[in-house]
């Protein structure tokens, strides 16, 4: 059975922004009210998903661009990823507290900030992530915070980067009687945690899988990522929660993520092999079959800068030195 739990975790507004401007028409553009209207949906028994917008970070979406999974247990929920801001983490926490009997454990799948910047709302809970991800969170947390404050503005109020404290272990994990299997992969980043819920056969794929939202490649290793997809292809989940994009029951995200990586790698290889500048490669836009994906072309333009050295080194032979 699937249920929709409409949530209004926000405090009631006293004045809508439009009303406020009627009263004081010369007031500077006022920031819209910063509330997350999260809508958790039960996708399988005890498997809740909060779906993110298929977009890049913006002041319109407040960073609610990432999928969150919550698995119910008698001891509280296993919360998989905590969102982009302290406020988003608090909204997720409120749902877990009000509807799922609290929080038993938090897992962060990898070090990208949309997956763990809400951790501070779970400071009193066990916080786990793959060891290399914890190290990366510790190293880059300050830089990510600076970036997100610049992009998200007041959505970031009160956000404090709090890396997970305990490393996850590969293999089975039982929480409050709910049996999970953790798989530590890599390729999207240096460490990507994938969770399989045994009771329902649901795959919580983290950012190893994207659907209808362009994969982000700042820390990508094409070969390791594609090898990870080969491993995921050997599973036969009853349903998949990708890192970004809709819940689905077929292999759509697996096929699309593989096709996107292959096509983007080939496109940037061709660009470097043809002597294009980075600017020209950006200007050309993503491979046409992926131009329509959510977060494109922004995500593709970012990928050109991030991945260019890989492609350029392959394209340019050594011709001299010091």
């Amino acid at each position: 059975m699937r249920m929709r739990a409409p949530l209004s975790l926000s405090r009631r507004q006293l004045l809508g922004s439009a009303t406020a401007c009627l009263i004081a028409p010369l007031c500077p553009a006022r920031a819209a009210d910063r509330n997350y209207e999260l809508a958790p949906v039960e996708r399988a028994p005890g498997v809740w998903m909060i779906e993110g917008a298929r977009e890049v970070f913006s002041r319109q979406n407040g960073g609610a661009i990432v999928n969150i999974a919550l698995l119910e247990t008698p001891k509280g929920a296993v919360v998989i990823d905590t969102g982009s801001t302290g406020g988003m983490g608090a909204a997720i926490r409120a749902f877990a507290d009000q509807r799922l009997g609290g929080v038993a454990m938090v897992l962060n799948t990898h070090h990208h900030p949309d997956h763990w910047f809400g951790n501070a709302a779970f400071e009193d809970c066990p916080l786990l992530a793959p060891a290399p991800a914890i190290a990366a969170c510790t190293q880059y947390g300050g830089d990510f915070a600076a970036s997100l404050y610049a992009i998200l503005g007041s959505w970031m109020s009160g956000t404090r980067p709090l890396p997970a404290r305990q490393p996850t272990a590969e293999g089975p994990l039982e929480v409050g009687g709910r049996k999970l299997v953790l798989r530590q992969m890599a390729g999207h980043t240096l460490a990507d945690l994938v969770v399989i819920d045994q009771a329902t056969g649901t795959l919580i794929a983290s950012d190893m899988l994207f659907l209808d939202r362009a994969p982000s490649l700042p820390d990508a290793d094409y070969d390791r990522w594609l090898a990870g997809l080969d491993q995921l292809a050997r599973l036969s989940p009853s349903g998949t929660i990708p890192g970004h994009g809709p819940f689905h029951r077929d292999g759509a995200a697996l096929a699309q993520t593989r096709a996107y990586l292959t096509a983007t790698r080939a496109r940037l290889d061709l660009a470097a092999q043809t002597g294009l500048t980075r600017i020209e490669a950006m200007s050309a836009g993503p491979a046409p079959e992926f131009a329509h994906l959510g977060a494109n072309p922004e995500e593709y333009i970012r990928s050109v800068v991030q991945r260019w050295p890989d492609h350029e080194t392959t394209a340019l032979p050594v011709i001299g030195g010091a």
Partner: peptide, 11 residues
């Protein structure tokens, strides 16, 4: 840019 397939997006 147009040396890439469909590379006329002009972004």
């Amino acid at each position: 840019s147009d040396m890439l397939p469909g590379g006329t997006a002009g972004l």
